[in-house]
Every structure is written in C-alpha cells, then in structure tokens.
Design a protein around this nucleic acid. Structure first.
Length: 127
RNA sequence: AGAGUGGAUCUGGCUGUCGCUGGUUUUCCGUAGUGGGAAACGGGAGGAAAGUCCGGGCUCCGCGAAAAGGUGCCGGGUAACGCCCGGCGGGGGCAACCCUAGGGACAGUGCCACAGAGAGCAAACCGCCGAACGGGAUUUUAACUAAUCUUUCGGUAAGGGUGAAAGGGUGCGGUAAGAGCGCACCGCGUUGCUGGUAACAGUAGCGGCAAGGUAAACCCCACCUGGAGCAAGACCAAAUAGGGAAACACCGCUUUAGCGGGCGUUUUCGGGUAGGUUGCUUGAGACACUUGGCAACAGGUGUACUAGAUGAAUGACAGCUGCCUGAAGCUUUGAAAAGAGCCAAGGAACAGAACCCGGCUUAUUGAUCCACUCUCCGU
RNA sequence: CGGGGCGUGGCGCAGCCAGGUAGCGCACUAGCAUGGGGUGCUAGGGGUCGGAAGUUCGAAUCUUCUCGCCCCGA
C-alpha cells in the first residue's frame, strides 16, 4: 500500500485497480448526498466528496437513457480511461462520481475525452 | 454471359506501448486461522450474447380432484417442444423452389350490420308462362274479331337487380314457361375395390342436390401442462433497534423458604439487515473420422478443455497490411462502345455474456464455397 | 437479469372481453346575445385507433411479430 501510494503521487502510475473505484451503493450515496457538484456540461455531471484517504477514487454512472448496452460500455470505458491517464489532475484525497447525461451516447469517444478535458480544466482551477 | 433459387462457413490479420479481469506458479508481508501485495506465464463476448415467444436441466414451495391454459393433416426425430426432417392436401412461380394456426359446422348455442322481395324448417320485387272471367282503356276488324295494358289466382329460380354469400357449374334434351325433371362431363356425398404404416390418391357403383359461412365466437374431440424463478436456494455474519433465557441489584407479598413484578447492569442465545462466500461453469456439450438412415438424427472411435464479471472485466492509442467503393489524372487493350492496372479519399454492419442448454423470432455489413433453374451466345 | 401494465383528435379518457356508427370533457373556429370582456346558446373543423402481417365479407376490437413509454423485485 505504501509503496504504491508513493508512486501515484509522482503521477507516473497509470494503473486503475479496484482500490481506485467505488464498489457499492453506499459509497455512491455518500458522495451524492454529502459531496459537492463541481462541474457540469451537456454531457456530464461531476460530484466530489473528501474522505481523508490518501488515494482518490472514481465512480461512474451511466443510465439506460444514454443508449444501448454497447453505447453505455463505450461511455464508461472512455471516462475510466480519462481518469486513469489524467489522475494527477484530480485532487488526491477524495471520491469523484461522474454521471453521464443522455447526449453523451451520441458522440464519439474522442469527443467525450475532449469534453472531459474542458470541464476539468474549467472547474479544477476554481476549486 | 446475364437473371434467379436453396444451403453452409466466416465476421480481417500482425506488431508495439499503457491498462482491466479471473486462473496457475513463484515470492514478500501478516495471522491461531481466513487474508493482503508483487512478478512471470498462458486465457478473456456473439451469430444473433438481443426479444423473452416456447421446451427442458437445476433450486425452493405445494402435492386429491377440478378449474384454467396450450397444441391440432399424417409418419418419424428428440430429454422435451409451439422445434426439425420426410410425405399429403391447398395456393403462387415458365422453372429451381417458396408460402400454408391445415381436427370437428347432421352434439348444442350464437352471429351474418348496411343493401335487398328474400340471409337460414329460405324467398316472388321486376320479369317469364298459364288460367279466370268480368269491368275499363287503346289499336284493329264488317263484327265485344283479334292483340296489348290493367285486376285476381296460380306455376317458375332460366334472365335482371342487391349483397362477401341467394340452396351445384357447362351443354343437350325437355316444357305452357321452367326446374337434376332426364342425360353427358365436372364438382359433391356415400359404399366398395386397389396402392400406401397413415394423411391421402386412383377407380367402379349408387345417390340425387338434401349438406351456406364463421370454431384466430362460445364450444366438442384427442393429447399435454402443479407454482415460482439463480434477485431460486444454501452458508458465514457487523453497527443500530427489538425479542428469549440466566445472574446481580431494586420493589411488592411473606416469620423464613419462596412467589410475583419489571426500571437498571452484565453474560448468553436464536432470528435477521448491510456486506461476504457458495450456487458458477465439463456439458441431453464441441470438433474430426466412421457405421445405419432419403433426411432430421442415432450408434461407435479419437482429440482438446475453450469467459466467469457482480457500480459489473474483455479496452485505448500508434504503425504496417489484406477486403470493398473509387472522383480527377496517368498507363494500356480496342475501329468504337467499353474493359484492365496505378492512385487521393472514404467504408467495414447489427450489436455486449449475467445460472446453463435445445429451438423460434427479430436486427444486420461484406466475403467465400457447394448444388440447382431459366434465357441468350458459341461449339 | 427477471416479472407486470399502457399506447385512440392538441390534452385527459370511454369504446376492445361479446368484430359492422369511432364517442365524452376541456381546448380550437364561426355566428348570436352584451356598449366591450367573461359567461351562456347554436353550428362546425380536426383522429382511419403506435407500426407490419394474418383470420374474416368486414378489424380500434381477434391472433402473431415489432417499436416506444411506465411500474415492481437488491
């Protein structure tokens, strides 16, 4: 745990194991109720809740309104890939929940990544 | 060469970097035990994984019948089926071939709107024909002579008209006019014979139109089905609240023993939520060869083990290269029409396992192979 | 993943089981009553019943397939 933690602080580790994910319904509810909405655009809504642990975690919600099972899988993979590669830009001591809105199912993966980049650049500096 | 029919298979490949997930091996940390981390190796979506329309396995509940529901030409296959195969009947196509919920309407009940004279033990509106005689009208005649119309009674299902459907069709005879009234052929029903396991087909005799449609209306007949579903079920088991039992302390009754109460404290028990483990992937299986069978399929031998996630993995990026379309231009064959090659650029669908099988249905890109039919040309 | 329900004018609903005329309320248009508006009265327009096949003489209704929406089971 301690070794891996030191690497992640340097921003060189691109792994994304189970420790970095929200794994049950209670964790999601905690972030959505007690956390704060810090970013929003027509494709996503982002929530943040500080938990005190040294490692940041991610939860992704894609409802059935986004599209079929193939489209939902594509959106989830794009969001997780972005979190994995841009993890150093997120704050390290909290949980993040990204909810995809219905328009996210109508664009390509590259467009999803650029939209996430814009919403993160705009809102992380403000916080 | 063109047009078409049926069936089968596949759903691009290779390399690199960064990731996810389960398995095996090694190793590190920690523990009474369960465990946590790292590295290496080799696995990781489909023909429909979909819709959930059927049939099963598996699990729990129930176990007497009935009700309710389903299936429906015949024979076979199958664990079973509403599926598949082979036949029969009907319909379509020049043909290869395709489509077909296809039992029963003399067991019973219901419905057939509108239109039409009549619509379910049928019916006479216009017609056609005959008779009655008397009255009237018109024409005609030497003459109430003849004809037509009108009235009444009767015959008729040929023709018209209505309708989805009007109680067989065509032809000849027959008749006052007509009619299965008679005859021939077709159709229908029925009895036999022949072929076939059967559905049914063929054929002979008889009957004489008696028997309209609708059962995806109720229904009858034959056969089948208990209900729910892996979020089934089994096991482990926090925090909080609540329940049972015991002990201590307290209160009431009582001389004590003891009995009762329930505020409190401690211990303990079982149920059970979050959560976890299991069910969970080796199977009525797949592939190859072979035997039987027209076939579906069945038997035998051999080979390999081939996804198991659970806020839910199977991905992202880059390069090279096959496949398809291919503007303009260039090269080339050719008299021309047109064809071939190079090439920018673009395209590659439908879609994501959730306990597992067998089917059906629906969505869909491109390619390859096999068999067959028709038309044209050449030999 | 599994189990149920609903699609009918602009909106909310009948009609479907038992097949032949698509109707009700609000809304819309026009006229009348009023000095004008509201209100009231009269008249009218607008849907082939989510889509496609089939059964039937005939389908919103019966059967099959399909599309969309909603609800329930942690």
């Amino acid at each position: 745990m301690t070794k891996e933690n030191g690497e992640s602080c340097l921003g060189e580790d691109f792994s994304f194991s189970k420790h970095a994910r929200l794994l049950n319904s209670a964790a999601f509810k905690k972030v959505l109720r007690k956390g704060r909405r810090f970013g929003r655009n027509p494709f996503f809504v982002l929530y943040w809740h500080a938990h005190g642990l040294p490692e940041s975690r991610l939860g992704v919600t894609v409802s059935r309104k986004v599209g079929s099972a193939v489209i939902r899988n594509r959106v989830k993979r794009a969001i997780r890939e972005f979190f994995r590669t841009h993890r150093h830009r997120f704050k390290q001591d909290g949980d993040c929940v990204i909810i995809a809105r219905p328009r996210a199912g109508q664009v390509t993966s590259a467009q999803l990544r650029s939209q996430l980049d814009r919403v993160l650049a705009k809102n992380m500096s403000a916080t």
